[in-house]
Design a protein around this nucleic acid. Structure first.
Lengths: 218, 218, 218, 218
DNA sequence: TATGAATGAGAGTTCATTCAT
DNA sequence: TATGAATGAACTCTCATTCAT
């Protein structure tokens, strides 16, 4: 009953979370039943209940697990881009980092996008278990919006609606993730470069443009 | 789908499809059970089964219904844009038409996006019932890609990856639809203008740019 | 139940029994799961299983524990009433003692009544674990019956069915216990006096009656 | 397929309610699972869910069914006793009617007592499904209390606590019901007469007593 | 056509119990 | 002694589907 979980408990919990992620990646969130997750872990259904009294908690753990992994990977890269100093470079760094993360960690990231899509299917209040995911997304978009606005204020970025661009960037990445899930042969790096080019053009200052050669097309 | 259905049959079918759309709009696809749809139509569950031997058929009918409505609304507008003559104007027309469609027909369009999201949650081969929707989307994106490429060939559009831009346009619209579903107070026209500006900048020729004043921001 | 248990064993057992009593008092018997009891004891579920190989054993221990406490409290008082000498005074002593016991030990006594009610919900052969409780009750009622019959034989008590009166006394006390559990603000002493008056009138000899003034009402 | 052809003529709902009553009578409330009830009805578990979306509603129906039967049987008898005119006769009529009802309808009445006992096992707010039962009981006791008080006001009944007597009457009947459930050979009429005698003595005016012969003992 | 009834699989959850350490 | 872990049966409930009328 202590709050310090044993090693075994942590291992099993982690395993179940991993199985839940795999199931969501491979089957989708709706089909990732407790029974399916238990089956993948090679244990009985009761084990899942033992470690996660309610499925909500398992989902919460999945969300937390993936978010942690995301932050670990992405935050250093985002910070290295020095958004306060060079807001005009942030978008490229952001897109590149996310694409790289998708390339190296497809399972968790695609699992989370599937979960996000499922949540979006439902109208009304989202389940508390996915609150953290929605908050993280909202924060992420808000930060991107802020940096874009900073660039505009400094005249290193052009005229555009920062919130719309930020939302579109996120939507483009979500879409890319599911394209990649459906077709693992997709050339992620090329796609990433194309997205960078797209949004750089969309957000650049007018002066910046003539310098762009016409041959960069993918 | 046979052409020799009686009038009553058609009326009932249409009613059930309409109720399915409403339910999906209001509750999401997952929660739109046969019982819920029958309840909304004020008929017994058996009626649904009678007209649609399997739920798949109902979904297929929903998809067909909404797609027909979409084509009816959008196609004249797309044709009026004369993509073969003015490919560089197509994107704006496309976005404007879709946003206008969303504004005037939120229920069917959001219902279809919810369905699309649910389908995207599931991995593997999609259900045959949603094939038409996926095909229509693919065709839509392919046509957009094609027109963009045509503009590039004529040097009335700049350098960018046409497929990536097309996919991103679609993703941005999907995202907008669900934003609008969650917040009906959203200013669709402003958002639409911002999207047009975003993608026009992203796809314009370099020469086109200096003409854009800095104050057009939304 | 063996006599060569260690001190620790006894202490742990007693603690678990106490927690089981508390849980039954507060939540009812059905909701007093092994997990709940372990939680209250601050130990793991396995501990309960270790000390009580089956839940039946725990219930048996609870029954034994409460019965012991009851006997300890009630028996001296019953004996002090000298039923063989003054059978006509026994009923008042019996009721007063029980009400006093309820007042001073509500948790165990109400726990046992809850358990009794649960047992009464089930038809058929009662579980062996509650045998002792049922036996004790039967003995208790039998003794009361016997004393009442003795009073009747001596013409110090009137004409009535001794078994029926005894059963009704017990039923009235059970009911009082659950009334008190539901409303701890109940005036137990007044209620007890009313019960004494009720059953004294019901069992008195005819001659005893005219002496009772009309104003004694509670 | 049910072997109980008597029920096949009834509506399925009524049959399920009857099976629920039988199960509660024979096994107790806790053991009367949906599966058990379905088994008794010779149908699949889903049938119960079809007719009673939640088990609560089945319980509610059981309660309503038994209460209706009780009122139908008891009310005319209670009214015939003319409590406003002869409050001193009401108690005997009340007890006699209840005992007669128990004798002629043991299954539903014992089922309800089992349910009542189960409810009493649980602390805290009772489930809404049993509200009607608890209300009916409370009303019943309140009416009895009122009539007893009326008799006291008219000096046709003696000095006693009317609420305590009323509660004790009810408790004695509940107890009798479960005694009878455990031992169907019990002589209900004798027991009923003994209860009438008990409570008549407990509530009589002092003057009424010398007339009572000493030989009425059961 | 239309319906109510019935089905059976599968969902999440609870729980007493067993077992290895 | 003590524990966390695991089990498996039973529970209520949901749902698409089938079927007789």
């Amino acid at each position: 009953m202590s709050t310090n979980q044993t090693f075994t408990q942590l291992k099993r919990r982690d395993q179940l979370v991993a199985c839940a992620i795999d199931a969501t990646f491979e089957l989708g969130f709706q089909r990732s039943s407790v029974a399916e997750i238990a089956r993948r872990a090679g244990v009985s259904k009761g084990v899942v209940t033992y470690h996660f009294p309610a499925k909500e908690e398992l989902i919460r753990a999945v969300v937390a697990d993936v978010l942690t992994s995301m932050v670990e990977f992405l935050e250093p890269r985002m910070r290295a881009a020095q958004p306060r100093l060079f807001p005009e470079r942030y978008l490229a760094a952001y897109l590149t980092a996310w694409v790289e993360y998708l390339r190296t960690h497809p399972r968790p990231v695609i699992a989370l996008v599937r979960l996000y899509n499922s949540v979006r299917d439902e109208a009304g209040e989202p389940a508390p278990a996915v609150r953290a995911m929605l908050d993280a997304r909202a924060t992420d978009v808000a930060l991107l919006t802020e940096v874009l606005a900073l660039g505009q204020a400094r005249r290193t970025l052009g005229a555009f609606s920062a919130p719309v661009v930020a939302a579109t960037v996120k939507a483009a990445l979500d879409d890319l993730m599911l394209q990649f899930a459906a077709d693992p042969g997709l050339d992620l790096e090329a796609y990433g470069r194309a997205l960078v080019a797209l949004f750089e053009r969309a957000t650049a200052t007018p002066e910046a443009f003539p310098a762009q050669p016409h041959e960069e097309e993918t």
